[in-house]
Structure formats: C-alpha cells, structure tokens
Nucleic acid binder design. Structure first.
Lengths: 106, 106
DNA sequence: TATAATACTATACAACACATAGTATGAAAT
DNA sequence: ATTTCATACTATGTGTTGTATAGTATTATA
C-alpha cells in the first residue's frame, strides 16, 4: 500500500485498537497485524502525539522488573475517531469520482 | 477534511480529471470543485510531479497572447490510477476495522 | 480606474510514515 | 554456555506532500 494513502488513518487505527481494552506498544502492533502493517518507528511517535493531544493517557505497570506503558483512550480520543469517520466519507467521494471517471473511460 | 487524509488521493484525482479530455491548471481546479477543494499551490506542484514521473505530458497552446499548458494523461498515468483503486481497497479495510471497533464500543 | 477572473511560478513550512540504530531484559534454542 | 529471539521502548534523520503566501502578467468587467 502506498505510503501517503495511509496518512491520517494509522493514528485513528491505533485509537480504535484501544477501545476494547488498554494496551501497550508491542501488543498494539500485534493486534493491528491483520488490519495494517505498522512498525515500531511509526507507532511510538503516534502514541506520543496522541498523548500530547490528550487523545490518550498512559500508566506504567511493572512487568519483569521493567515498566510497561499501558495506554488508555480518552473522551477526546473517541471524538477524534468520530471525526475521522466523517472525514472518510469525503474521501469516499473522491474515490467514487475517480472510479466513475475510470468507468467512463472504458 | 483533515489534511493528512487527502494525501495520495489528490494526485490521482487530478489524473482522473484528465481522462475525459486534456485540460490546464485553472480549469482542472474548477472541474474538481464539486469533488475536492484544491488550491493553486497544491495543484501546480502535483502537475509537475506527475509530469516528472511520466504520468502526464503537456503541450502549450497560445491563448490571448500567452501560452496555456494543456496536460494529457499517459498510459503510465492510467496505470497509476488503477494502482490507487487497488490501494484504496486496503484503506477500506482500515476504515472497516475502525468502524467495527466503534460499533463494538457502543 | 479599480477589481475580478484568468494562469502560472517560486519559496518556505509543518506533519507524518518510515528507516536505522541503540538500549535493555528474559526465555528458548543450539 | 552462548547465541538468538521475543519483548519494549527511545532517538535521530529523511523524503513526500498539502498548503500558505507572494509575485507576475493579461483580459474583461464594473
């Protein structure tokens, strides 16, 4: 999948993955494996951005002598998801336009 | 519409707008007005990129004493559109995942 | 005579996906 | 016993792209 097309979706994808239950970096990547390929170097900056914009908060839990950061979605994060769903409708319009022009071209 | 979500779509949108007939900058913006908001500062760099990647070629036509650049889509440009349509299917998977998680959360 | 529409170029910026590399622990495999 | 793998996170740097802003220049309209 072309890189640019993912933009804006990955962030919301991460948020959505936290709706069921709190989770941490490594596990988020695994839980999203069937949906979209996302690497560490992509995920962790996303987590920091989402936290900075109050869409996520986190707490640390000790695990094997080390701290594991559990992320939890906030109300603002849930609003962010709804905005995305609306924006995606507009993107669907663009897609439909392109698909229509292609059909006309045949 | 959030900026990031547009990425990768605008370019293909411009290509698709040239399937019916050759066109030039100003007219492309107008013909896309109902589909997506695209400004001059967005369109002209896109046109240059598409030309650099051989997805478009152009020819100049004199109009009122000035040259007007008419753009014409190439076979490579048409292939690019088809790639986009496929990639968009993957993006739909992401969208469906997010929508599903939201439904589960209610 | 000023404004709007037409038509394009140039420069600079911020966001984001991603590569690469580094740090550190415990478990499994050879 | 030592390497490898899975886990878990941080830091730095890069390229693409949408967009703001500004500049240039012509013709038509108010």
């Amino acid at each position: 999948m072309e890189v640019q097309l993912k933009r804006g979706s990955l962030e919301v994808c991460v948020l959505a993955s936290l709706l069921r239950e709190d989770s941490y970096g490594y596990k988020i990547i695994q839980s999203l494996q069937n949906v979209v390929e996302i690497s560490e170097s992509t995920l962790y900056p996303i987590l920091r951005r989402l936290e900075a914009s109050d869409c996520l908060k986190f707490y640390s839990v000790e695990h094997n002598g080390r701290l594991r950061k559990f992320y939890s979605i906030t109300d603002k994060g849930k609003d962010r998801i709804k905005e995305y769903l609306q924006d995606f409708q507009e993107l669907m319009n663009i897609f439909n336009y392109i698909a229509k022009e292609v059909r006309n071209d045949d």
